[in-house]
Nucleic acid binder design. Sequence first.
DNA 1: TTCTTTTATCGTATATTTGCGATATAAGAT
DNA 2: ATCTTATATCGCAAATATACGATAAAAGAA
Lengths: 111, 111
Amino acid sequence: MATHKKEEFTQREQDLANFAKAMAHPARIAILKVLAQRNECICGEIVDLLPLAQSTVSQHLKELKNAGLISGSIDGPRSCYCINWKAFEKFNGEFNFLFANLKVKNEKACC
Amino acid sequence: MATHKKEEFTQREQDLANFAKAMAHPARIAILKVLAQRNECICGEIVDLLPLAQSTVSQHLKELKNAGLISGSIDGPRSCYCINWKAFEKFNGEFNFLFANLKVKNEKACC
DNA sequence: TTCTTTTATCGTATATTTGCGATATAAGAT
DNA sequence: ATCTTATATCGCAAATATACGATAAAAGAA
């Protein structure tokens, strides 16, 4: 049991789920918010902004990077992260595609 | 260790993370997709559309309901779910608020 | 070279999620 | 009342996620 059934869904569904998963923690939202607002490479200082240990922040950054939401270059003892707007564009589009009814039909009441 | 630090973030960050978490599984994306496309109460048949056991689907539905993404009424042996467009509107707005730069600055290249 | 600073990774404990089968529940059909 | 059908819940096993301290690595400063 608990044997991964995720691959039985479409690639689109998996991609969108992975994007959502990357955003599914307030720490990662907070990191993304900082990167989005400054819209430039942030070198260091991210750790100082969060109520978490350095190793934990590094782990969250790694997850965001693996999911493609941010990109970063590590340059020795100084790392540099910035938001990957392309990914946000893609998933924003995907989101709207899947839930295109959002603005059209939302007045229709159901249960 | 592993002691919940989530409550140390802002309520907005937590709310958005919870919304994302609810979408962070392809099965739940698939469920939402069905409900969004039909845009009406779906009574039954959801289980038939997914490659998962009935109890597992029921659990996913419960999570979506707890997160407020769908609403449903259970009427004896027949349940009835539909998408909660209000929640999607809210979080779509929240998403755009946090990442408002999306359309403006995405040509600016960083790392 | 060694020291310092910054970030990543490893190891580990705990918490949460995922999934299923079994069982309960609730209402209509017989 | 019993049977059937549809859905929810319980209990459990396995997998993942979260968090931290300790340690490694990488580059500049002394």
